[in-house]
Design a protein around this nucleic acid. Structure first.
Length: 97
DNA sequence: TATCTGACGATAG
DNA sequence: CCTATCGCCAGAT
């Protein structure tokens, strides 16, 4: 387990139900801004134990190759998904906005 | 140590 | 919307 991997895992577990973040956000939150690519690698290698479905690309695009599974899990979390992309990323639930 | 790869990000065409 | 290019980082060979 490298520090990077632990940091990423910790961030993912820090997310609340229905919380969706991007790879860049996870990387920055983990303390490795710009390491979004490495984050994707961790999720891909981690395989299980990690809420990878709460992570999407900066464009709101779902994980390539897992769009169906991803969309299904996001729907279970209450996230609005359509055509392989999230309709919105409510990282901060602000009714004022 | 060097090189390649990848569930990324942004810009440009 | 899609592909191409560059920059980024960590891991694998």
């Amino acid at each position: 387990m490298s520090g990077f991997e632990q940091a990423v895992v910790r961030v993912l577990h820090s997310l609340r139900p229905g919380e969706v973040v991007t790879y860049g956000e996870v990387a920055a939150e983990a303390g490795y801004p710009g390491a979004g690519r490495a984050v994707g690698r961790v999720l891909a290698t981690g395989g299980d134990g990690l809420p990878w479905w709460r992570v999407v690309t900066a464009a709101g695009r779902l994980v390539p190759g897992h769009e169906t599974e991803h969309a299904r899990r996001l729907a279970a979390e209450g996230i609005a998904v359509a055509d392989g992309h999230v309709l919105a990323v409510p990282d901060e639930v602000d009714p004022a906005v």
